[in-house]
Amino acid sequence: MSRPDETAGAGGWAAPEGSWASSAANRRSMRGNRSRDTKPEVALRRLVHAAGLRYRVAAKPLPKMRRTADLLFRPVRVAVFVDGCFWHGCPDHFVLPKTNPAYWEEKIAGNTRRDRDTDTRLQEAGWLVLRFWEHQDPASCAAAVVKGVSARKAELARPRLDQ
């Protein structure tokens, strides 16, 4: 069933004011994209949880930063991100759409810049940042997360000599 703001014009559809969608089908597709709980994220979370680690989901690592990590281990300062190949410009799988390429090129470049800025800000604040592509093997990603979290726990448990 179409919504009132999506019906008009010769083709039976007009983009709502301010919409970037090139068609009703594209708009539905884009609105259906999840920002969290994607299949790769859930697969990784299951394996990490099965390994005995507990974490926050879709949480802000830094209070004043308007960005969330997919998995967050706050006590040991480890932030995990599972990046989608399309949205984050995977060098192996990203293909620029033929429709409205200028928009998408800038959109994906902006996402990549934001990812690098997030990494830098978190690292400067003492966080370990782990990033994985959605196409990577969940088991190897989970092993890397377990290794990173375990190393940070050991680091925190070690007595510091400079105190």
Rank of each mutant, 00 (worst) to 15 (best):
M1E: 07
M1N: 03
D5I: 14
A8D: 10
G12L: 04
P16H: 04
E17Q: 15
E17N: 13
G18C: 02
W20Y: 13
S22Y: 14
A24T: 00
A25N: 15
N26L: 14
R27N: 00
N33Y: 12
R34H: 04
R34P: 03
R34F: 01
R34E: 01
E41C: 08
V42E: 08
A43E: 13
A43W: 08
L44P: 03
L44Y: 00
R45D: 07
V48Q: 07
A50D: 11
G52Q: 09
G52W: 11
L53G: 10
L53F: 13
Y55I: 09
Y55C: 07
Y55Q: 10
Y55P: 02
R56N: 00
A59T: 09
A59G: 07
P61G: 06
L62R: 08
P63S: 15
P63F: 12
P63M: 13
M65G: 11
R66E: 12
T68D: 05
A69N: 01
L71R: 06
L72W: 01
R74M: 00
R77N: 10
V78F: 06
A79V: 02
A79M: 06
A79F: 07
V80W: 02
V80C: 03
F81M: 11
V82N: 02
W87K: 06
H88N: 00
G89L: 02
C90L: 06
H93E: 09
V95C: 11
L96F: 09
P97Q: 01
K98A: 12
T99S: 12
A102G: 12
Y103N: 07
Y103S: 06
W104Q: 02
G110D: 07
G110Y: 08
T112R: 15
T112V: 15
T112L: 13
R116V: 13
R116F: 10
D117K: 15
L122Q: 02
L122M: 05
Q123A: 09
E124W: 02
A125K: 09
A125I: 07
G126Q: 08
R131F: 04
F132Q: 02
W133Q: 06
H135C: 08
S140E: 14
S140W: 12
A143Y: 07
A143K: 12
A144T: 14
V145F: 09
V146D: 10
G148A: 05
S150A: 15
S150L: 14
A151H: 14
A154M: 01
A157I: 00
R158N: 03
R158Y: 00
L161N: 13
D162C: 12
